[in-house]
Design a protein around this nucleic acid. Structure first.
Lengths: 220, 220
DNA sequence: GTCTATACAAGGATAGAC
DNA sequence: GTCTATCCTTGTATAGAC
């Protein structure tokens, strides 16, 4: 591991666990075992280290999403896995740095700070969310073609709602104690699929009191 | 306006616009026109000012929600208004302090910092979200009784999803440029009601190709 | 490339006069 | 209650020896 990488590794840990302002150059120096002055040989300043960390994070999550999708061949698995893999990325980070799956990190805060400091970071973040949105829309369209997903739902609204529930879950789990990760997470994930699939509707349509049942199939 | 209130007013503005760490005692002193040493006569320290601000914020939003609900007499209006009033509370703050409805504040970050510092703040935040959840569940139950809302959807899951979409929208609008407030907000709000109402289902049921249409009535 | 030493500014907080 | 002056610590960042 190069010195530059060592610096990023220990910086990232602290940015995620303590936030931007509470991560000091003294702290990074102490934890990485590299003297403070040397940090300035490798990086111009604290912000330079910070934006490197954000780039690394976003590259990692995109890579994680892409590789978790690669083995899948049907829209249902893809959509369920997409949801899970993003949550998983977060909980894995939490466990790595906090030895605790549910103790929240400052992922969102990092993006917000970075976004407010530099235009090109804001653009990179937009690029990530666009990637997420495009990925979801592609899955939806595939599902529509295969008659698995009802085809008169506006694809981009659906994609936005997917992302919104995901972000909401992550944000809420940071500050609302009642939200225990596993319990709610699976219910949320299930409802996302069942509410868009034709199959769920048709299954229910074969039973009595079709209309109400059909709607309930969506569990929403 | 008492000196204590003046201090809180100018502190709150800065906590919301700049975040906890970037709001310094020097800044509060300068903006409130009260010398730094005097701040310490009225409040024990920076944290004391901060938790007073959080209490004030949560009291205000609860009051805003309650009063916006008071004039309403049916579940549909209640649920739509609940969503709007919380978004409105946020955008009003943004406009007051930033002269810009869509420039994000640090509301969520304040809650998170407060939550991590003091147990009783965490409890107060839980109390707010419990209040929100209970309010929603009450509306849902009322709607079920009046046969306006399908009655075999789990009420507390629905309440959680409502909150989740709301928080997701707020979180996302802080960092994703593509989300322009008005455009998406109304679509989200509409879909929340139409996806749970019996009326939407029955309306669609009277048309052809019932199953698919019914589902689309949910716009989800 | 890495270190010791240090500059300089700004943070939170207090002493004590008025 | 409010102020001026000050304390102490810690932050980012650099100079310059090795």
């Amino acid at each position: 591991m190069s010195t530059k990488d060592k610096i990023i590794a220990s910086s990232l840990k602290n940015f995620l666990t303590k936030g931007y302002e509470n991560t000091t150059m003294n702290l990074i120096a102490a934890e990485s075992g590299i003297k403070k002055a040397s940090l300035y040989y490798h990086y111009k300043n604290k912000e330079d280290i910070f934006i490197t960390c954000i780039g690394y994070l976003l590259d990692s999550i995109e890579h994680h999403i892409e590789s978790s999708q690669s083995e899948l061949d049907n829209p249902k698995d893809k959509i369920l896995t997409l949801f899970s893999s993003i949550i998983e990325f977060n909980t894995n980070l939490a466990y790595r740095y906090n030895k605790n799956y549910s103790k929240p990190l400052n992922f969102h805060q990092m993006l917000k700070v970075g976004s407010s400091k530099f235009i090109f970071v804001r653009e990179r973040i937009d690029q990530y969310y666009d990637f997420l949105k495009d990925t979801i829309m592609e899955i939806i369209d595939e599902g529509k073609k295969e008659k698995l997903i009802v085809n008169n739902i506006n694809t981009d609204i659906l994609a936005f709602q997917f992302i919104s529930i995901l972000e909401g879950y992550l944000a809420l789990s940071e500050i609302y104690s009642s939200i225990t990760a596993n319990k709610i997470r699976n219910q949320l994930r299930d409802s996302i699929w069942s509410s868009i699939s034709i199959k769920e509707n048709l299954q229910n349509a074969n039973k009595k009191s079709t209309i109400t049942k059909t709607f309930l199939g969506a569990r929403w």
